[in-house]
Amino acid sequence: MKNLKTIALTLFTLATVAVTAQTKKVDVTKSTIKWVGKKVTGQHDGTVKLQDGALVFKAGKLTGGSFTVDMNSIEVTDLQAGKGKEKLEGHLKHEDFFGVDKYPTATLVFKTIAAKKNNVYTVTADLTIKGKTNPVTFDMTVNGNAATTDFKINRAKYDVKYGSGSFFENLGDKTIYDDFDVSVNLVW
């Protein structure tokens, strides 16, 4: 009887330890990344597409994630074709901003994750843009087969200099703010 209890306890322990991570590949056709860049005289907004990505769960809890963004897919959504849309998209892809010829992708790799409350996690990740890597921290909400987050990125940390008061003086109303807002909706 004692051996039977020991075997049962051992099996239970092994079953508990054997909980393996589940990787949820993100559906890049249903997932969205929206951005808003602001300047003294207004703002522009748009989208950029995921190239690939996945979230990792263990025992139903978020434990990891990594994503690659296709920087060539930068699109401006607040302007119409023939009314500055193409010009701004071309400039955002130029070395003045994201230099997509040399840096066609940006990456985000989760480093630490802390459960905050039901289905909300505080994530610290390494964000790489234009070959420069810096940590970013944000809250992510996971609900069923979707996850959402909103956070700010300081472009100056990634050597995105054009119109930045951090790099140039006396820009006046030509100043473009360093922080831009990102809103992400992931679906798997």
Results as ranks from 00 to 15, higher is better:
G82D: 11
K111H: 04
E95N: 09
G53T: 05
V28I: 13
K34E: 09
G165I: 06
D45G: 00
D96S: 10
V26A: 13
Q43F: 12
N145A: 10
M140C: 08
Q51Y: 07
E86W: 10
K34W: 03
V136F: 13
G163K: 03
T6F: 05
V28M: 07
A114V: 15
A81Q: 15
T141K: 04
K38G: 02
V123S: 08
K87H: 07
Q43Y: 07
V120E: 14
K38C: 00
N154I: 10
K174A: 13
K85A: 01
F97W: 13
F12H: 02
T29K: 15
S164C: 08
L88Y: 09
G46Y: 02
A156W: 01
K161W: 09
Q80R: 07
D27K: 11
A156Y: 04
I7M: 06
T149P: 08
D96Y: 05
N118C: 02
K102G: 00
K34C: 09
G60P: 04
S166R: 06
F151N: 04
N134R: 11
W188H: 04
V100P: 02
F167T: 14
D27T: 01
T122M: 06
F67T: 10
A59I: 11
G60S: 05
T122Q: 15
V120C: 02
K117I: 02
L50I: 05
Y177K: 04
A146R: 06
E95I: 09
Q51P: 00
A114I: 11
F97K: 03
L92R: 01
A125T: 10
V19R: 05
A59C: 08
K5P: 00
E95M: 05
G165L: 02
M140R: 00
K132G: 00
N143A: 15
A115D: 15
G165F: 03
V48I: 13
K157S: 12
V36Q: 14
V19E: 05
H44R: 02
V76Y: 07
D159N: 15
T175L: 15
E75K: 13
E169F: 03
T175A: 13
A146V: 00
V123M: 10
I129S: 03
I7K: 01
G163Q: 14
K130I: 08
K117A: 14
V187G: 00
V160Y: 12
T107N: 12
L14F: 13
M140W: 02
K38E: 14
F97H: 07
D78I: 13
Q22D: 10
Q51R: 11
V100L: 10
K116E: 14
K161C: 05
T68H: 03
I7T: 14
N143R: 01
K152D: 15
V19I: 15
E86C: 03
R155P: 03
S31E: 11
I153W: 01
D139S: 03
T6Y: 11
D173T: 06
A21V: 14
V160G: 05
G37P: 10
N154V: 13
S164P: 08
T128R: 04
E75N: 11
N118P: 08
T29P: 04
T133A: 15
K2S: 13
T107G: 08
K111L: 01
T47L: 03
D126Y: 02
G46P: 01
A114C: 07
V142N: 05
A54F: 02
D181N: 12
A18M: 14
T13C: 14
